[in-house]
Computed example of a mutant assay.
Amino acid sequence: MKSVMSALRDTVPINQFNRGLAGKIFEEVKKSGAKVVMKNNTAECVLLSPDEYAKLIDEICDARLLLLASDRMSRADLSKTVSQEEVYRELGLSAADLLGEEDVELE
């Protein structure tokens, strides 16, 4: 968890935007990753760098996929599963046949 000093450094009063300091604030966001914009001593919004935003979205997507996979596995009938070896045999393949092929990512 961030320290109190870190939290204070990562806040910016909204009136700084009105004073023409948006460019400076955006540069700080690029360095720190995020700034909390305060209005009337209340957090109004959070500014995130594009990299930080992408990282958070990726984490959310990964968490959703993990939840979905966990749910499916909890309801799976493992007696109906087929081993990798059985799939290879049915398709007339071996593990050696797939060496050097590009990996496929399933979601």
Rank of each mutant, 00 (worst) to 15 (best):
E28S: 12
I57H: 05
D103N: 13
K35D: 01
C45I: 12
G92M: 10
D71H: 10
G20H: 07
C61F: 07
P50M: 02
T42F: 12
R19H: 15
D77V: 02
E27W: 00
C45V: 11
N18T: 13
G23L: 11
P50G: 00
E44P: 05
I25D: 07
E28I: 09
L8R: 13
G92F: 08
G100K: 14
A95F: 12
S70W: 01
S83M: 03
D103C: 14
N41R: 15
E86Y: 08
A63D: 05
G20S: 09
K30W: 10
R72V: 04
G100W: 14
A63M: 05
D103R: 15
Y53N: 00
L99T: 13
D62A: 09
I14H: 13
E105A: 15
E59M: 08
A63L: 03
G20I: 06
I57Y: 03
L78V: 11
T11R: 13
L65I: 06
N18G: 14
S79K: 11
D58S: 09
V12K: 02
S70T: 11
V104Q: 14
A95Y: 10
C61T: 02
L106E: 14
K24G: 10
M38W: 01
E44I: 01
L99K: 14
K80A: 05
E28Y: 04
N15K: 08
E28R: 11
E59A: 12
R89M: 06
Y88A: 07
S83N: 07
R9T: 06
A22E: 15
A69V: 05
R75N: 05
A34T: 05
K24F: 08
L48Q: 03
V36N: 01
I25M: 08
Y88L: 15
M38G: 02
I14D: 12
E85L: 06
I25L: 07
L68E: 14
V87Y: 12
I57A: 04
S79T: 12
K80H: 04
Y53F: 11
V12S: 05
S49C: 01
S49L: 00
Y53R: 07
G23D: 15
T81E: 06
L78M: 07
L8H: 06
E27I: 03
Y88M: 15
V46W: 01
